[in-house]
Design a protein around this nucleic acid. Structure first.
Lengths: 377, 377
DNA sequence: CTGAAAGCGCTTACAG
DNA sequence: CTGAAAGCGCTTACAG
């Protein structure tokens, strides 16, 4: 029975012993070249190469230095669906840009709304988190907040103790509704993003709308409501269809519902471009002419909006910038920016409780008028 | 001057002392519920909540257990460009799917071809790496191999000591060229992916083609060459245009070049659909009718291929599956699969040198004939 | 320029 | 069911 010579992977210690120098020296050879003669350094590096040792173990270094060199991105949906959606894909691009500038890793933590074990989710080695569009009651976010990890939220939930990046959804919705009301429309329909995270798709229900778990649709409803009210229209008279996700298929369902059951609707407000695109398809199916017989406006201004036939009027929000800004926000926060997030062992100074104030960054929205909206006939 | 009571973040140790139990017990309360009475467990968890302690530090746990709970994905391009490209986006989807199944994190390490510091790149806490489409001489890969980290390569480089997932590029190229030659074409042009990683875009150069740093274009050239040869056509007589990246813009440039300088070309072989789409645009610009006057075939079968006008004939490769298979390959490798990658401190058994044999998984390609190819007139 | 020592926060046999 | 102890691999003042 051959006895293995126990070929354990070499460590700093092994190498130091082999070379007859201290661990300090080996460590310095890798991480602080100025702390030793280049001669010695060369010798160490050569020996390392020979021994198959290629630098300090990142995990051990992290434990010691307190820096993970990466940030975590908490995503509600699976990564595939996130990439499929042009809006979230753009967001991701922005985040990735910022990480690249800073040479930080990006650890993606997808699918958190479909209840995974809260604890495990945040059990990752990162210097901070970006959370994108989560329902208000999601435990995972509470977990991050409790831990006191640096955190920036994009879109929602909006809570006073957390820095947040979002657009002025209320104003965006107002712009959309005002645009259509200004064109003379009086009979509206609304295609909504989910008010709650339970997967419901169907006609609007009062309790869901008035007590939403998602902030964004709530804000937008208020925006629609305010604009319509100033034209003498009550939201109570406006049929609403809630979609569990932002995609064309559900938008199509919503379109059918609004066009069939609600009869004489001449203008539809959709909370995303993908939903609006679905409504467009439903109109096509019923041979309803857009914008002659029906006006449709979306939200986001994804690439596909301009390319649609007819091209889609919408409320533009700077998606990529939103991602970029969120990442910069996080990376520039004192806790993450400081080269040592974890205080030194003997260090009493303790970075004087850097509870950086939570901030809100409000990005602009803009009405983009294209072919899908026109005067009421 | 108020003296902070040093509100250091609580640890397992702190908590144990507060509660008057051992660290073991606290640890067990979180990680091995069966090791203590549920009464005690509740007490510990309650105290933890109160103290603002939310579970063991992932980094420390990693150092101890040797498991990072994530894999690293090494990408040649920036994440934005990767997401922009439907082919790589599909690949990413497949990888993400597998990670989600296994509840593993995915740490994205983009932009490695544009020389970043090799050392730092792989200084991340992961259980293994997937490397996608890298040039043969890239130091970062060597680094991973030397470290002995579990590794699966997608597409390239193809080296015997590393497990690799790819399609039969040679055969795919053969199918494409045979298809066109079978339609009677005799005057070909080739739009190539890069042979080297130096950013060159321009007419094909013999030394680059015969000694490529990228394996895939090399294989495909051989495939084209073999198919053409059996129809009596020598590659020497075929104009080639090399593109530094796979995108429509460079494809457009290539198309112009081939259509202008090469005169009577009637069939163009492009190594990606995006390149082919660019050629299509160039033909449109010059009012050359496809497929009447010019046949074009791509490679990949991205979503946009079927939607193009005219729709694009191509060689389909299972992009998403490729990603999924690579991830599964890695995750099922003994080193990663075993619940403890790092041997126990006192453990001599040493998992008997699990140098899992490197394997190659060869995925099928398929000729998809659409509108962009037709008989020579 | 170099080395000895402490300690980051945790998990796991092992003994009781 | 519970606790004392070792040790994962590293970095950093500090002393020489």
């Amino acid at each position: 029975m051959p006895r293995d010579p126990n070929p354990r992977r070499p460590t700093l210690d092994t190498l130091a012993k082999t070379l007859g120098v201290s661990k300090t020296t080996v460590s310095n050879a890798f991480s602080r070249p100025d702390q030793l003669s280049s001669d010695l350094r060369e010798r160490v590096l050569a020996a390392a190469r020979e021994a198959g040792y290629s630098g300090p173990d990142p995990v051990a270094r992290m434990l010691r230095t307190g820096r993970a060199g990466a940030i975590g991105l908490i995503l509600p949906q699976s990564l595939p669906s996130t990439l499929d959606d042009p809006a979230t894909a753009a967001l991701l691009r922005g985040i990735a840009d910022a990480c690249e500038e800073r040479r930080l890793g990006l650890l993606i933590i997808p699918g958190v709304v479909r209840g995974r074990d809260t604890q495990r989710i945040v059990d990752v080695a990162v210097d901070g988190f970006i959370a994108y569009s989560l329902p208000r009651d999601l435990p995972v976010l509470e977990e991050v907040v409790i831990r006191g990890d640096p955190l920036v939220v994009i879109d929602q939930p909006r809570r006073p103790d957390v820095s947040t990046i979002h657009v002025d959804d209320l104003r965006g919705a107002q712009l959309a509704a005002t645009h259509l009301a200004g064109l003379g429309h009086r009979r509206f329909g609304i295609v909504s993003l989910p008010f709650r995270a339970d997967g419901y798709t169907g006609p609007g229900q009062v309790d869901r709308i008035t007590a939403p778990t998602y902030d964004v649709p709530g804000e937008r409803m208020q925006g629609y409501g305010a604009a319509l009210a100033s034209h003498g229209i009550s939201l109570d008279d406006v049929p609403i269809f809630e979609c569990a996700r932002s995609d064309e298929e559900l938008g199509f369902q919503a379109g059918r519902y609004l066009l069939e059951s609600a009869g004489a609707v001449t203008a539809i407000l959709a909370m995303s471009d993908r939903l609006a695109l679905g409504v467009l398809a439903a109109a096509r199916e019923r041979r309803i002419k857009v914008p002659d017989e029906l006006s449709i406006i979306g939200f986001d201004d994804i690439d596909g909006a301009a390319r649609a036939r007819p091209s889609l009027s919408t409320i533009r929000q700077p998606l990529q910038l939103k991602g970029y800004a969120a990442a910069r926000f996080l990376l520039d926060s004192p806790r993450v920016a400081s080269s040592q997030a974890r205080p030194e062992p003997g260090d009493r100074a303790e970075a004087e409780s850097v509870t950086s104030e939570s901030e809100i960054l409000d990005l602009p929205v803009e009405l983009i008028v294209r072919q899908s909206t026109g005067p009421r006939r």
